[in-house]
Design a protein around this nucleic acid. Sequence first.
DNA 1: CTGAAAGCGCTTACAG
DNA 2: CTGAAAGCGCTTACAG
Lengths: 344, 344
Amino acid sequence: MGTTLKDIARECGVDVATVSRALNEVYGVRRETRQKVLAAAARLNYRPNRLAKGLATGRSHTLAMVISDIRNPFFAELARGAEDAAYQAGYELVLCNSDLSPSKQVRYIHTLLEKRVEGILMNTVAGLSPAEQEELSGSGVPIVLLNRPPASIRGFSTVLADNYEGGHLAGNYLVECGHRVIGHLTGPREHGNLAERAKGFQKAVEGARATALIVRGHHSGEGAYEMMKKLLSQRKDVTAIFAANDAMAFGAMRAVFDAGLRVPEDLSMVGFDNVELAGIVRPPLTTVHQPKYEMGRAAVEILLRRATRPDHSTPEHRLLEVKLVVRESSRILKGRRNQQGLSS
Amino acid sequence: MGTTLKDIARECGVDVATVSRALNEVYGVRRETRQKVLAAAARLNYRPNRLAKGLATGRSHTLAMVISDIRNPFFAELARGAEDAAYQAGYELVLCNSDLSPSKQVRYIHTLLEKRVEGILMNTVAGLSPAEQEELSGSGVPIVLLNRPPASIRGFSTVLADNYEGGHLAGNYLVECGHRVIGHLTGPREHGNLAERAKGFQKAVEGARATALIVRGHHSGEGAYEMMKKLLSQRKDVTAIFAANDAMAFGAMRAVFDAGLRVPEDLSMVGFDNVELAGIVRPPLTTVHQPKYEMGRAAVEILLRRATRPDHSTPEHRLLEVKLVVRESSRILKGRRNQQGLSS
DNA sequence: CTGAAAGCGCTTACAG
DNA sequence: CTGAAAGCGCTTACAG
């Protein structure tokens, strides 16, 4: 069916090696010969077999991303950034949804290694056993993570938003708005990014001698809904909430509404991520913006850099800036300060 | 670095052919030999090179999806369904964002064919030239489209929601709610799926001797915002709107709010797709549900079926059911009928 | 049941 | 500049 180098070689009366050179290299082949080969290739509608090429060169020209779920807008945005960067470099991106299941993650990784992908973008390796993490980091393919890996394992690159700074921004903002008792809904301690946000938040709040109430549960809308309900029943003095991500903020808002309270009149709400929905819900959500698209791009750039220069194999680490986006879900409590300078 | 069949063969004192058989086939190899090979493979941490395997067998075990933009929640949902089906079958899915740009689509397709993917899921081929469409359909790899292709081209499979029925449901519902002048915001005539929705809608409305106002523009939130503004300034008698997709409905709602009107008190609004956001905005959007996840699955199932039985190459066509989801953005105008039977 | 050989379609030193 | 050869790592008739 497909025409191969051999067909072109026969057609032109030259060797396949010459055809290969003519098609790939800029010189090392006589102009005339090259033209003849190119013409024949076009005429025969030649399509190189990339599997064969990959086998011969050891390069597959494909990258992969193993994330929890592409339906999560955070990952969709990230994926788009990653794929754009890959496309520009002539690479393909394979999409894997792991649901954070360790067994799925392991299966994906094995298959990807067998397909000789040249780099993998993963949100985390936290679910893998130490042995699996070691195996991965020693597998030879570049990996970039979106969460800080255990300190014991070397070899992973990372692309991180400045989570600590983001938490600090949120905490500081709420304190400056005059809030004195502020709840923080977050996930399990093991989740590195969330832990950083909590730390930054706590630092800002307690540094201002206000009270930070840390509530842990599942870091999802559902989880936050439950946490919020419980918190409302226990502490009447809370006037503001910082949720560890936007999905949690939406869940928490539902619980607030269900309790017959208003946002921001009764309770200020701040999220993290700045997904598109944050600007659309009522009231629009104040949140910490993460440069999701850029993070995807940055991750692929690192992968590509490491794939093409296997010589120096020290991992790269990239920290991206976050910023506070003030919308209508939060308000100044006692007007001690004006809002100038806060809303940047 | 990687251990190969040859290493295992040497280790076990057998031929690579035997190793290959032991690793792949269930019989044709003595039990004992098989065990020995398996043990050695495990010990040496053998990972088959899929590029080599693919070259030898002609099968890449990968599928691809070429869509406009993964950030569109419709496609994210679809992608998840597709990837789940692929994963279960032991296939990988490569993600391509075309923005519907013909040149990007063509470049993606060429690369994918060169990588010998075994099937491609594409939203549409409408942007390609007839020659390109012919080339694609004759390329030998199974293709499933999410839009009806030009009648002139044979060979494409399709997975479609019942767009006509969906439009009909929407039109019929609004008529039964008592609306007599109903606007329909839609896209260009060439867009097959939207055209079907418009047809079904018109049939239902005009069949009931009510007035259907078709407004065309860009099928996006922005486009709908503009259309709606214009419509409001021209026709004061419109009491309901059917938007060709949810994003358009959201845009139209913004225009309604900007004009100082209320939904559904002044204007009923119905969308199409039932993206997650539809249930979250205020007021929650009445819309026609499309089974996006299932469409993704169905598409991959067709691709796989056709990839594994290249014998009968007639395309498959799958039509999926839609249903009306009544929420709070629409209301009964004059109460001529009760809502029973409408909300199913 | 197993080995030896040829082949999948490319690339890349090595000669000339 | 070009050809002949070997190799990438697998599979699969063909013998035995």
